[in-house]
Write a protein that binds this DNA or RNA. Structure first.
Lengths: 229, 229
DNA sequence: GGTTTCCTGTGATATTTATCACAGTTTAAT
DNA sequence: ATTAAACTGTGATAAATATCACAGGAAACC
């Protein structure tokens, strides 16, 4: 981990919310903010630890996880750059409800919670923007979780592939950042079922898989599977 | 529905957030707020409709639902008094993602969204409180949804019973406000499996059921089932 | 009060999914 | 390059759950 002081004025990766901050506000932020790099595989934040900082993911890919029963890792979602991590825990509790682990090399900022709260109480538009983005995320998460409960495995797997293709990588061809075990933990099933699902999609010409490079060949069919369940 | 003008200054059912409002703020709220009663069975808000008002549930019990695939109703959660309804949709989108239906007679307030936003931008502490309560709710919801995905039916049913007993009615004995079909829609299973689960709990002396009056007889055992899944 | 409609309980069966087992592949480490 | 470790693919079987079917109860509606 390399850490350095930060000038938020000139940051190229501002969040939606911090774009509304005045120069004065940005300097308050910069004074309470440290940027650092984290390498793939490291854990940024542990479930169960006390909340102490706002963490802003500038760039890179992160998995948000919880320990399930018999302490199997459940993956809640994959997070890409320009996102605050663990806001619900930060404002809704004193301990973190999720762990965050780097799926790639990352750049993150640690912001002192007191400074962040000060900004929120001084600048209602900032708070409003933060709330807006949280609400958007929540709608998305609830939608995903509720649908997941109804769908069968092929449908959920299709959803996961579409999620990576459309939301995360914005490309029909991408390198899966997860092992099959992790995909299974993400869609709530067993590793074997995930493997069988991928085989099935491959055999039906819906996708191609080479090592961990996936390409969606028949998007309509995949969407169909996602709908049908 | 009976509607009347509202004096928010003297409201006995203020939300956590509106408790921090000044008298002036409360008058702004009161001028843009109408109180009404809604009877059991009516729908307050339809999924898919445009967001137009903040709705505050003063008293009563509401089910929050979404249409699942093949348009089966999924029950996301049960909501009791002193809660804003549909905040995520309101701030995260322009259409409502959930429907809200009365499980009992209700008192609700409709608040003009423009006035509410004005308050949020004028009073950052208010906004902060709103955000805080949203975050608490989210942690709770995510926890529930994630665990639900891992547990088997008996575990989920146990959770639902504990939820009614501890969170909603705060009593070991309560009248189930849902039919078995609805309980099934709540825990994500079939009506028959729900019926079998309840029978099983009854036969094992964990609960007693008379019509829709449920009493938890062996709390420890029920919690055990909830844990074991 | 009688009829209709919705709700509940439970057996039998079919479907879905997990688990076990193990061989073949890829990746990482020396 | 070679070995070890982790990951992947697939069959066989077991467990969980849904679905179908139907009878008996409760509630609601003339």
């Amino acid at each position: 981990m390399v850490s350095q002081e930060n000038n938020c004025r000139i940051c190229q990766e501002k969040s939606c919310a911090s774009k509304v901050l005045s120069i004065g506000n940005l300097d308050i932020l910069g004074n309470s903010c440290r940027t650092m790099t984290i390498s793939k595989g490291e854990t940024i934040l542990h479930e169960g630890s006390l909340t102490s900082h706002v963490i802003y993911l500038r760039s890179g890919l992160v998995k948000e996880t919880v320990k399930g029963i018999d302490s199997q890792e459940q993956i809640f979602k994959i997070i890409k750059g320009k996102t605050y991590l663990g806001m619900s825990s930060l404002f809704g509790d004193t301990i973190n409800h999720f762990s965050y682990k780097a799926l790639s090399d990352l750049t993150v900022c640690h912001i002192e919670i007191s400074a962040f709260k000060q900004l929120m109480l001084e600048n209602a538009e900032f708070t409003y923007k933060i709330m807006e983005s949280q609400c958007k995320e929540n709608l998305h998460n609830y939608d995903k979780l509720l649908k997941q409960g109804q769908k069968k495995i092929f449908g959920r797997l299709a959803d996961a592939l579409l999620y990576f293709s459309e939301d995360i990588f914005e490309n029909k061809k991408f390198t899966l950042p997860l092992t099959q075990q992790e995909v299974a933990n993400f869609i709530g099933t067993s590793r074997e079922s995930t493997a069988r699902g991928l085989s099935n999609f491959r055999q039906n010409g819906i996708i191609s898989v080479n090592n961990s490079v996936v390409e969606i060949l028949d998007l309509n069919c995949l969407k169909q599977v996602s709908r049908t369940g």
